[in-house]
């Protein structure tokens, strides 16, 4: 198993303590293409943050690629994020004052790879995304789809074991959304990387091979979706 969650609980302590995850049990295998679906407030983003070691959980166990992720120091967590996990965000989260290629290089910078090698690899991945001509452009000069492709290149460049995508199409129109999902599918197949997409759009979820429904902090139904017919709108259509 690539990912194994055993009775994971998470409570936010504020003025009113909020029990967000109420005993999550989940297994995701190597190379799977999975979506986590749920309404807002269902705990799906919290779950993704825990999977991405961006947030910690209170009780339970989280096993990532055979290692228990618990009580890590900031440094260890940073190392895991850099080596094992690739992130794709709804708002792209590119650094505005860096060009596309510099953004893609950044994870390798934190891995201590030399300048020239970084640039070479980043150009290679931008090429895979069809963005060679846009390498020296700044994010604010690009369309949403282009920005998301830069972000995907940045997530892929470290050869991560899993990619976590948080509403990757949330800021895109339906046509671009479809392109991005096709790209993720291709990446999942070609790079053999475990792909987890968090979404509230059934069309997006329909593109994945397994849909995990989460409601009120508990895992509900887990659908196998190999034929991609979970969406009432059929395959290859994302309704906005």
């Amino acid at each position: 198993m690539m990912i194994e969650l055993k009775d994971v609980n998470k409570t936010y302590f504020g003025a009113q303590p909020l029990h967000v995850l109420k005993g999550i049990n989940l297994e995701i295998g190597k190379g799977e293409f999975v979506s986590i679906m749920g309404a807002s407030g269902s705990g799906k983003s919290t779950l993704l943050n825990i999977l991405g070691i961006l947030d910690n959980y209170d009780t339970g166990e989280y096993w990532l690629d055979g290692r228990l992720i618990k009580g890590l120091s900031e440094r260890e967590a940073a190392r895991y994020r850099n080596h094992t996990i690739g992130f794709i965000f709804q708002s792209f989260n590119l650094i505005n004052f860096k060009t596309a290629v510099e953004n893609v290089e950044l994870p390798l910078f934190y891995r201590g790879i030399g300048r020239r090698e970084r640039h070479h690899q980043a150009m290679e991945y931008l090429d895979k995304m069809g963005l060679t001509d846009w390498a020296e452009h700044f994010p604010n000069e690009m369309s949403g789809g282009q920005k998301q492709r830069v972000a995907i290149a940045r997530a892929l460049i470290t050869h991560p074991r899993i990619i976590l995508a948080d509403e990757p199409t949330g800021a895109l129109d339906s046509k671009t959304s479809l392109e991005v999902m096709e790209l993720l599918k291709r990446v999942n197949k070609e790079e053999d990387v475990t792909m987890i997409v968090v979404t509230h759009e059934s069309g997006v979820a329909n593109e994945t091979n397994k849909i995990i429904h989460i409601k009120d902090g508990i895992i509900g139904k887990v659908e196998d979706n190999v034929d991609h017919n979970a969406s009432p709108f059929g395959e290859n259509s994302i309704m906005k």
């Binding site: 991405g52 961006l54 900031e74 440094r75 940073a78 190392r79 994020r81 850099n82 080596h83 992130f87 989260n93 590119l94 650094i95 950044l106 994870p107 934190y110 891995r111 940045r154 470290t158």
Partner: peptide
């Protein structure tokens, strides 16, 4: 802060 958040998600250590 937001930028530092991105950097951390990409593997920046506190020391860096």
């Amino acid at each position: 802060i937001h930028e530092f958040g991105i950097r951390k998600a990409l593997g920046a250590t506190p020391w860096s």
